[in-house]
């Protein structure tokens, strides 16, 4: 994992594996602190053991490194990573904070690209992206709406790829993320 964009894509896959069909990502960046929260409506986690690299539900290999790696990357900069079950029925919320001015901070990487990758990689997931800025929360992207245009024939996947990319590039620029 070279950058935060890779990490984000990687932990997004956890939500997919947890049978989620709706994921909400909230992003904030101010005073060099990058905050990101990811909530899904999947089956939920049992406890903290997901942060142990030698615990995994997967059968193809015996270690699970996605979350522990991100936790390490966050803590290396003096930040944190927390993960919790949302309620009894399931759902998982994960949030992490990184100090991007820290010498050990990983670069952002291409975040807008990550979102188009998610759009193509998992067509069954409805992702909503919110940007938090000055205590205001704005929804900037809703994959359900974008796919609806595709279903109605108003747009196609190539046009939508460009659309997602340009919206997110704009938003990241506003936040001074590069």
């Amino acid at each position: 994992m070279k950058n935060i964009a890779d990490h984000l894509f990687d932990i997004f896959e956890n939500s997919v594996n947890a049978a989620a069909d709706e994921v909400i990502i909230r992003i904030a960046f101010s005073d060099n602190i990058f905050y990101c929260s990811i909530s899904d409506n999947g089956i939920g986690i049992a406890g903290d053991e997901v942060l142990d690299p030698f615990v995994t539900s997967r059968t193809t290999r015996k270690v699970g490194l996605g979350l522990p790696l991100l936790k390490k990357a966050a803590e290396d900069t003096g930040g944190y990573l927390r993960i919790k079950r949302i309620n009894q029925d399931g759902g998982t919320n994960l949030e992490f904070e990184m100090n991007m001015s820290h010498i050990d901070a990983k670069p952002f990487g291409d975040l807008p690209q990550t979102f188009t990758d998610i759009y193509f990689a998992w067509p069954e997931i409805d992702l909503k992206i919110y940007i938090i800025n000055d205590c205001k929360k704005d929804k900037v992207l809703d994959f359900y709406e974008i796919r609806e245009d595709e279903r109605k024939g108003l747009s196609n996947s190539i046009k939508n790829r460009r659309k997602i990319l340009s919206i997110m590039q704009e938003e990241m620029k506003k936040l001074n993320i590069e």
């Binding site: 994992m1 890779d6 894509f9 990687d10 896959e13 699970g64 790696l69 690209q113 990689a121």
Partner: peptide, 14 residues
């Protein structure tokens, strides 16, 4: 697109 794939550059491939 597991952690291993992403670390190896699967996003560029896709």
């Amino acid at each position: 697109m597991g952690s291993c794939g992403i670390a190896a550059g699967a996003r560029e491939t896709m």
